[in-house]
């Protein structure tokens, strides 16, 4: 036992002084020891965006911003737009994760692990201004455990659930709440998404399913 501990300490001591040129390939031994060290002595997690954001800071924001809450892990992060291509906006957070939206509807995530690679929500986007619709085709794509792209088709009903006033960071928004109830056509879980839409069509808040492992994201448009 003592010998085993000595060996472990040796390995830890060695890793601390592992010196590598920046252009060398990754070493499995170094990565393994780093990972073990990180389990024993984890880095401090980045601060939750909800703790950092203030109405003043939001008012000063030069760009649009979203507050994203990963509901399952109760993690909050803020993202800002970095690019737009043919109607799809790419949003990035400080740690490199990101989102994609189209007309305010979430169509992709990155950096969460069990990401939504793309979502085809053309029927939903057409139905949102009408305030409802049925049998709307939605196709969610994700990479499975062996990196194969899996396309899951859903038929969704969009239903208005009445008016609701949202208040966050010192501002209030009059919205109509709609729910998108999706049933799988060929496998995948059933889920319900919610959208809080203002009179001008702006999606002020949404709650959208990403994957069984990540759960849903709650996305607030905190700066226009």
């Amino acid at each position: 036992m003592i010998r085993g501990l000595t060996l472990l300490l040796c390995a830890a001591a060695l890793s601390a002084c592992s010196i590598t040129s920046s252009n060398a390939p990754d070493s499995a031994a170094d990565l393994g020891i780093d990972a073990l060290t990180n389990i024993i002595l984890p880095d401090d997690p980045p601060p939750d965006a909800r703790e950092v954001l203030t109405p003043e800071a939001i008012a000063r924001s030069p760009t649009s911003a979203l507050l994203v809450v990963v509901e399952q892990s109760d993690r909050g992060l803020s993202v800002v737009p970095i690019a737009a291509n043919r109607g799809t906006v790419q949003w990035l957070d400080g740690s490199g994760g990101g989102l994609f939206t189209r007309d305010g509807v979430l169509v992709g995530t990155r950096g969460l692990g069990f990401d939504l690679m793309t979502a085809d929500v053309a029927a939903l986007r057409a139905a949102l201004p009408r305030g409802g619709g049925s049998d709307l085709l939605r196709v969610n794509r994700h990479l499975d455990g062996t990196n194969q792209m899996i396309a899951e088709r859903y038929l969704c009903d969009l239903v208005s659930e009445g008016g609701e006033t949202l208040s966050f960071y010192g501002r209030s928004f009059a919205t109509t709440r709609l729910s998108e109830r999706c049933m799988p056509v060929d496998g995948g879980p059933a889920f319900t998404n919610n959208f809080w839409v203002e009179r001008d069509g702006t999606i002020r808040r949404s709650r959208v399913f990403v994957s069984p492992e990540i759960g849903s994201l709650r996305i607030d448009l905190i700066a226009d």
Partner: peptide, 21 residues
Amino acid sequence: LNPKRSPNGSGLDSAPQPVAL
């Protein structure tokens, strides 16, 4: 364990730089 069940899904790597139009 099962190779088909990755503990991190498609990975935690950061989002790519967007295509520049």
